[in-house]
Computed example of a mutant assay.
Amino acid sequence: MAKSDKRNQNLMNLIKRVHSVVENADIEKYRQSQDYFGALLGNSKETTVKAVRIGEMYGEWIAVNRAHMKKHVILYCHGGGYSTGSSQYARTLTTKLAVSTSMDVFSFDYRLAPEHPYPAALEDAVAAWDYLMLLGYGARDVVIAGDSAGGNLALALTLKLKEGERLLPRGLVLMSPWTDLTSSGKSYGNKKEVDPVLNEEYIGQMIQNYASGQDLENPLISPVFGDFEGFPSTYIQVGDNEMLLNDATLLHKKMAKANVSVKIDIFKGMWHVFQMSPFKTAYEAMDKNAEFIYDVCR
């Protein structure tokens, strides 16, 4: 086995351990292990973290320690199946985003399921958006980014703003977005053997926690069913080894049909939210995110 393949395998094993929530019935313990993972891999000498409160909700600003652009900001929605994850866990991504774009990144700890099912996370995302607006940012100064369930939340927030006839963000950056809680894509079947991170049991548990008894075709729960007319420019990244591959490709197809300026990159041999890992392809993907953000903010 080549050195890089072996490293990839070791990384996948680590990622698998971090994600195996179903095997660990104690969800609180699992959340703590994710925070530990975030603290371990999300440390960057190039950035500072500043904590804030929005009512009861914790939020944090990640900024690079050098002169940088203040006009535009990134609102970051963390992943974790709506049941786990936090701003700290997301630092594996938010610090890379801040460094690669030289923009401030704001992430927030929305309430988690099963204690707080839908629509708690969406209400908190609206509160985070309103916080940025109160700080004096315009909607067009904000790019919303998210991974996995955070990609779902980024889309749901934008759909909610559209529903309220409010101004929409400048752009969307979605990494392995979870867009379809009805699990209709073929990749749920044909990728389950190769996906090192997700499995049917895990996804089923996350759906149960977040949206039990809800209409799963509600676009605020499964954004792939949304109306994307007038949506901002969107960039999607997904690995070709993940069960959520079709969540990304179907979203891309629907957005293109609605005349959204949308681009998708499918990364060969990559898994769910591979951008978290400290290796070359992850940094290259982050550079592509930064290129997209620069383009839309020009």
Score class of each variant (00 low, 15 high):
3 K>E: 15
6 K>F: 13
11 L>S: 02
14 L>N: 04
17 R>Q: 11
18 V>S: 03
20 S>H: 06
20 S>F: 02
21 V>W: 00
22 V>D: 10
23 E>K: 13
24 N>C: 05
25 A>P: 12
25 A>S: 15
28 E>H: 13
29 K>R: 12
30 Y>R: 07
31 R>V: 03
32 Q>L: 15
32 Q>H: 12
33 S>K: 12
33 S>N: 11
35 D>H: 08
35 D>M: 10
35 D>A: 07
36 Y>M: 11
39 A>P: 02
41 L>H: 11
42 G>M: 01
47 T>W: 09
49 V>T: 14
49 V>M: 06
50 K>D: 12
51 A>G: 04
55 G>Y: 13
55 G>Q: 09
56 E>Y: 10
58 Y>H: 10
60 E>R: 11
61 W>S: 08
62 I>Y: 06
64 V>W: 03
64 V>Y: 06
65 N>T: 07
66 R>W: 00
67 A>C: 04
71 K>N: 08
72 H>I: 05
73 V>N: 04
75 L>G: 08
76 Y>F: 15
76 Y>T: 10
78 H>Q: 10
78 H>V: 04
80 G>R: 05
81 G>V: 02
86 S>N: 12
86 S>Q: 08
88 Q>G: 03
89 Y>E: 03
91 R>E: 03
96 K>S: 08
97 L>C: 10
98 A>M: 08
104 D>Y: 14
106 F>I: 01
106 F>H: 02
112 L>K: 13
115 E>C: 09
116 H>D: 04
118 Y>G: 04
126 V>D: 05
127 A>Q: 14
129 W>P: 00
130 D>W: 06
130 D>A: 07
130 D>E: 14
132 L>K: 06
133 M>W: 05
135 L>H: 12
136 G>D: 06
142 V>Q: 03
144 I>Q: 09
145 A>E: 08
147 D>M: 11
147 D>T: 10
149 A>W: 13
149 A>E: 08
149 A>S: 15
152 N>F: 12
155 L>V: 11
155 L>R: 11
157 L>G: 14
161 L>A: 07
163 E>K: 15
164 G>V: 02
165 E>W: 03
169 P>W: 03
170 R>W: 01
170 R>K: 15
171 G>Q: 10
172 L>N: 00
175 M>T: 01
184 S>N: 05
184 S>I: 12
187 S>V: 01
188 Y>A: 03
191 K>G: 00
192 K>P: 01
194 V>K: 14
194 V>G: 03
197 V>E: 01
198 L>K: 09
198 L>V: 07
203 I>T: 13
204 G>F: 03
204 G>S: 15
206 M>E: 09
208 Q>D: 13
209 N>R: 01
210 Y>H: 14
213 G>A: 05
213 G>R: 10
214 Q>E: 13
215 D>T: 07
215 D>L: 05
215 D>M: 06
220 L>C: 13
221 I>R: 08
225 F>D: 12
225 F>S: 10
229 E>I: 07
231 F>E: 10
232 P>N: 11
235 Y>A: 00
237 Q>I: 13
239 G>V: 00
241 N>Y: 12
248 A>S: 15
249 T>N: 04
250 L>M: 15
260 V>S: 11
260 V>H: 08
262 V>S: 01
267 F>G: 00
268 K>D: 03
272 H>E: 00
275 Q>P: 04
276 M>P: 01
279 F>R: 09
282 A>K: 08
285 A>R: 13
287 D>F: 03
289 N>C: 15
295 D>N: 12
296 V>M: 05
296 V>W: 04
